[in-house]
Amino acid sequence: MSEFFPDAIFGSVAADSWFGFDRIIFVRIVLTIVVLGLLWLGARNAKLVPGRGQSVLEMGLDFIRVQIAEQVMGKERAKPYVPLLATIFITVLAMNIGGVIPGLNIAGSARLGVPLVLAVWLLLVYLSAGVRKQGFVGYVKSQLFPPGVPKVMYLLLTPIELLQVLIIRPATLVIRLVANMMAGHIMMVLAIGATHFLILEGAGLLKLAGIATFAGGLFITGFEIFVAALQAYIFALLSAIYLNFALEEEH
């Protein structure tokens, strides 16, 4: 676990500390600077006829807009939320990809903070969007008292729905992402650690097993790249779905 809670570079990383700076936060800084720098390079000289960098950037943003936002929410409804979803997707992807960058070797989203902040932000946005769209009473009614069920069922349904809207949806987003990143990191550490140990200290044929674990490490690295993109996609897609729930009259 200490991989995920490294020692402080400065400040304190105690559980009650308000200021601390450790390796993961350093990784996040690097990722932030590099990714935003790349985005800036792509968008800086944005022209009508796109260059290569701009084309890639446009393709990515188009993917977010069309495949995530508009597909779930519909063209008109998605429009105000595309920047939010783009932020979520890009941030998660940027943080995730740190896990396979040599030198960084851990995802910025492997610890709770970034996913949690994103999820809480999303929670606030969809609550306020729902209230704005349907009014407070209308929103509460549509979310907590789904129509078409016997009144008695509300005793059971309403607490579940309340829990669902306020806790479960954001929490599942966070936990899914963090768990994925942690698991990926642990697998890579295991594979690489095992390779290291087997090759350097293994006796005889055990060195051959090291080759197998090295191959496993390679595979896991590729898999982690895939997972990084997939989790970013899932996070953004579910965000769009939750937003859509809030904006729909009933679900």
């Binding site: 990383v13 308000w18 709770l112 903070g113």
Partner: peptide, 10 residues
């Protein structure tokens, strides 16, 4: 791992 320290949130 699911109880973040305040600095992490900040």
């Amino acid at each position: 791992p699911f109880i973040p320290a305040p600095f992490e949130i900040i």
